[in-house]
């Protein structure tokens, strides 16, 4: 791999990971390329089991790639894992806080693991407790905290040594909506402060709300990547209208060839229309059904969003 330009925080080429198990090989990641620039807020979006966490695992050195290579902050994740670990912070999906230590000590010892003197580590711990509003939980046990508090402490812990790249694996999974929105605010502040962030999520709206650039991942591959606007503006950036009838789909006439309609898919008693211009389309489909003697049992219309992008790319509805 050639030396990447200096402002590249992460470069991955053709990463593969196959888990071997007695029941056979499970390909989790099947050829992922990534480039993340410094200061960027990058999102890996995909349904559960798409290979996002495995990808993050490889970038954070704890999952060994089956093939391919990756450099983080200029260091090879396989050959120089300690150098990589010195420069990254990671917030796992699980609560991996040290149960034998208080909230304060969790921060204090993280600082010391990263080479701070005992005094500097304590000062830094105070600073971060303050910053993440956890001062009143200072002596608390990490497992007696609410999900939001534990997550804030984990983010604080990941930032103790001022990492160049912050990784977050599904940071808001399992949190209530209010806590999620509050965490988003924290992450936006971090980005504003110049922090490079890589986040995985299976929530479309999370990727839309936070990320500069998004890679849509499914079955261990990147289906598309770009800014949210680019993705929406690409082939999939359309309104998707899905209509189900109580009988076979009526003859749609010249619908397929009409301007503003890019694709029509039929499956069973259901028709799905990918359109740039969807005004009046639903009424038309209802009318077509009525004249053919079938009525509409279900209809849904998706505005241009990452969800329609996903639907266009995979032909499947997005399952969270």
């Amino acid at each position: 791999m050639t030396e990447p330009p200096p402002d590249i925080a992460i470069g991955a080429v053709d990463l593969h990971k196959t888990y071997t198990s007695p029941r056979g090989d499970v390909p989790a990641v099947q050829g992922i390329d990534l480039d993340v620039r410094q200061g960027e807020f990058f999102g890996l979006l995909g349904p559960n089991g798409a290979g996002k966490s495995t990808t993050i695992g490889m970038l954070t050195t704890l999952v060994v790639p089956t093939s391919g290579s990756a450099r983080v902050c200029g260091f090879d994740v396989e050959k120089q894992p300690v150098e990589v670990k010195r420069r990254i912070g990671m917030v796992s999906q699980n609560n991996t806080l040290d149960n034998d230590l208080t909230a304060f000590e969790n921060l204090e010892f993280r600082g010391r693991y990263f080479g701070m003197s005992a005094r500097d580590a304590r000062r830094r711990a105070e600073e971060l407790l303050e910053l993440f509003n956890l001062t009143d939980r200072r002596e608390g046990n990490p497992f007696e905290m609410s999900g939001g508090q534990a997550k804030r402490l984990m983010i604080g812990r990941a930032l103790v040594h001022r990492p160049e790249v912050l990784f977050l694996d599904e940071p808001t999974a399992g949190l209530d909506p209010q806590t999620r929105v509050n965490l988003w605010k924290i992450l936006r502040e971090l980005q504003k402060a110049g922090q490079t962030i890589v986040l995985t999520t299976h929530y479309m709206e999370e990727a839309e709300a936070l990320c500069d650039r998004v890679a849509v991942v499914d079955h261990g591959k990147i289906l598309a990547s770009g800014t949210v606007e680019e993705l929406k503006g690409s082939a999939g950036a359309e309104t998707v209208l899905t209509v189900a009838y109580d009988g076979s789909v009526p003859d749609l006439g010249g619908l397929r060839e009409r301007d503003g309609i890019s694709k029509v898919e039929l499956s069973g008693n259901q028709v799905r229309v990918f359109a740039h211009e969807a005004d009046g389309l639903l009424g038309e489909l209802v009318a077509l059904g009525t004249s053919a003697g079938v009525s509409v049992t279900d209809a849904s219309q998706l505005r241009p969003s990452l969800e329609t992008v996903f639907l266009t790319l995979t032909g499947r509805e997005y399952r969270e």
Binding site: R86, F114, G115, L131, N133, R162, N182, I186, A193, G194
Partner: peptide
Amino acid sequence: TAQGKTVQAETLTAPPAVR
């Protein structure tokens, strides 16, 4: 956390003091 206190840039991204 989110509204009242903003995350100060230097607190978070100043280069690490120790290697």
